[in-house]
Structures are given as structure tokens and as C-alpha cells.
């Protein structure tokens, strides 16, 4: 199945990648906001982000904002391309004649 990405296809990772790729004008989101937006636990989100990072789909940056530690997550260019190809593959399955 061309474009299908087994790493992205896991349901939670699908939602993570969909959110990250839909942020548009914002290019990164902090870990807590991502966790709250997707209603996940820290451990669950952290494990899935590690998997996505190891696959090269997201980059994770640890920094400080107003002297407080913050972890920002953003999709990589390869991650965006892989996600778009994955969505196209899923949509192709639902087209008539498939």
C-alpha cells in the first residue's frame, strides 16, 4: 500500500500527527498543551512522541520560557510528507472501485 506508514497509523500517533500538521501558523506546541488537547497522560504521550521522534517524524526541543523549562514538539518536513502520504493512502482505500 503506497504511502502507508505503520508508525503513524497507531491511533494515538495518528491524532498526534494530525494535530501537529494542522497547527498551520504555529510551528511548535508545548508538551502540556499537546497533552491537554489530546486528553492523554504524560507517560502515554511521551512514549508515542519518542516513537515518532525515532522515526524522524517529529523533533523535540527542550528550552526555557520565562525561566521555566518547556518542551516544544514540532513535525519535521519528512514527518509532514509521511503524514500527508498516509492520509492519501487511507482516503484512496475509501474511493469507489477499491
Amino acid at each position: 500500500m503506497p504511502g502507508f506508514d505503520p508508525v503513524i497509523h497507531q491511533p494515538v500517533r495518528l491524532r498526534i500527527m494530525a494535530l501537529l500538521c494542522a497547527l498551520g501558523r504555529a510551528d511548535a506546541i508545548d508538551f502540556s498543551t499537546l497533552k491537554d488537547s489530546l486528553e492523554l497522560t504524560e507517560g502515554n504521550l511521551g512514549a508515542h512522541l519518542t516513537t515518532l521522534e525515532n522515526a524522524g517524524h517529529v523533533s523535540i526541543e527542550k528550552t526555557f520560557v520565562a525561566r521555566r523549562p518547556k518542551t516544544f514538539v514540532r513535525p519535521t518536513a519528512d514527518g509532514r510528507r509521511a503524514f500527508e502520504a498516509h492520509v492519501a493512502a487511507l482516503e484512496a482505500m475509501l474511493k469507489p472501485g477499491k
Binding site: 491511533p11 495518528l14 501537529l20 494542522a22 487511507l90
Partner: peptide, 29 residues
């Protein structure tokens, strides 16, 4: 790996849920 159309439809629903969460995150920022 092969998927049934039903599995593909469920996956696209997950994607839409993620996109909706992004819209809310932006608006509620």
C-alpha cells in the same frame, strides 16, 4: 499491511479528531 475500508474510515476519524484538537488549541491559546 492491508486494511479494510472500515479500518481506513476509523483511522480518518482519528485524524479529524486530531485536526479538531488543533483548531481548539489555536483558538483557546
Amino acid at each position: 499491511m492491508t486494511l479494510s475500508p472500515e479500518e481506513a474510515r476509523v483511522a480518518l476519524e482519528q485524524i479529524e479528531a486530531g485536526r479538531k484538537a488543533a483548531r481548539l488549541a489555536l483558538r483557546r491559546n
